[in-house]
């Protein structure tokens, strides 16, 4: 890979794709229904796109998998062969994909109010359509949106963001080139309590540098939360409007309202 020849951060303080250090990539959220899924979301962070569909809560297919006091969650991740520059097919048993799936499952298990649906199952299917770094971040944000869209009760949003450190300067929302080059971490935050549900880091980094990027990423996650919430509000308002109720008012402008009645 020729990535080492690319300047991660140039002298003017710009990154290889023209962003500033703390700038996030553009976020696009599509909450349109997908086929027969109960909830779906397509989320794009820059050039990384993930399509998430949620089925359920429904009766568990396997009797052995039912839990008498709560719902079980199953997560499957598929990666399209065309999603990366190098076309290659990943098998279902790929350890990396299994790990990604179990990460997402472990992240959402305490967030979804599974106790409300005993003996049932919630299936989450993720399809990675484009990959350009920060895959875990995109997957988690997409899953949050799809779950909300499916009307599954959550304790809170889960907002993820990736961050890295180049020499001594922290970067946010890394693309593939940066991810290959700099130490990076992914963090998921629950914005209401500002608590961290997930942190992963796989490269060597000093504790002090870690703390710096860790705190910065937590703030960035809140920015992503604003975007996600705005998208959910627009969707909810369209639904309300299409119900034709005269009482319901479409107040899409109220972004800062404290009551979040749609999730």
């Amino acid at each position: 890979m020729a990535s080492s020849r690319i300047e991660v951060l140039n002298q003017g303080g710009y990154r290889s794709d023209g962003r500033k250090q703390h700038e996030l990539r553009s976020i696009a959220i599509d909450l349109a229904p997908q086929g027969v899924a109960d909830g779906a979301a397509t989320i794009t962070h820059g050039l990384t796109t993930v399509l998430v569909s949620v089925f359920g809560p429904r009766e568990a297919k396997l009797r052995s998998q039912t839990l008498h006091d709560r719902a079980t969650i199953s997560v499957e991740v598929g990666v399209a062969a065309f999603s990366t520059g190098e076309r290659r097919k990943r098998s279902k048993g790929d350890k990396r994909l299994l790990e990604l799936a179990s990460t997402i499952k472990a992240t959402f298990e305490p967030v979804i109010q599974t106790a409300l649906y005993p003996r049932s199952q919630i299936d989450i299917y993720l399809h990675v359509l484009e990959q350009d770094g920060s895959l875990l971040q995109t997957c988690i944000n997409g899953t949050t949106l799809a779950l909300i869209n499916a009307g599954i009760p959550l304790l809170d949003f889960v907002c993820a963001v990736s961050g890295g450190v180049h020499v001594a300067s922290p970067l946010l929302d890394l693309n593939q080139l940066e991810e290959n080059d700099v130490p990076h971490l992914t963090l998921a935050l629950m914005p209401k309590t500002k608590k961290i549900t997930l942190v992963t880091m796989e490269t060597r980094l000093h504790v002090e540098r870690f703390e710096e990027i860790f705190r910065l990423a937590a703030r960035a996650a809140e920015v992503i939360h604003q975007e996600m919430r705005a998208a959910i509000r627009i969707k909810a308002n369209t639904l309300v409007a299409s119900m034709g109720s005269t009482r319901a008012t479409v107040d899409g402008t109220d972004r800062d309202g404290n009551h979040m009645d749609e999730d």
Binding site: L185, K194, K195, I196, T197, V199, T200, R204, E211, F214
Partner: peptide, 28 residues
């Protein structure tokens, strides 16, 4: 996972109880 030179190599917290930033740093 870290070495004696205070360099973190792997940090891995998947789901489970949500924690505050300070708590995570305390654990580290």
């Amino acid at each position: 996972a870290l070495n004696a030179q205070r360099e973190l190599c792997v940090v891995h917290k998947l789901g489970g109880v949500p924690m505050e930033i300070g708590e995570v740093m305390g654990v580290l």
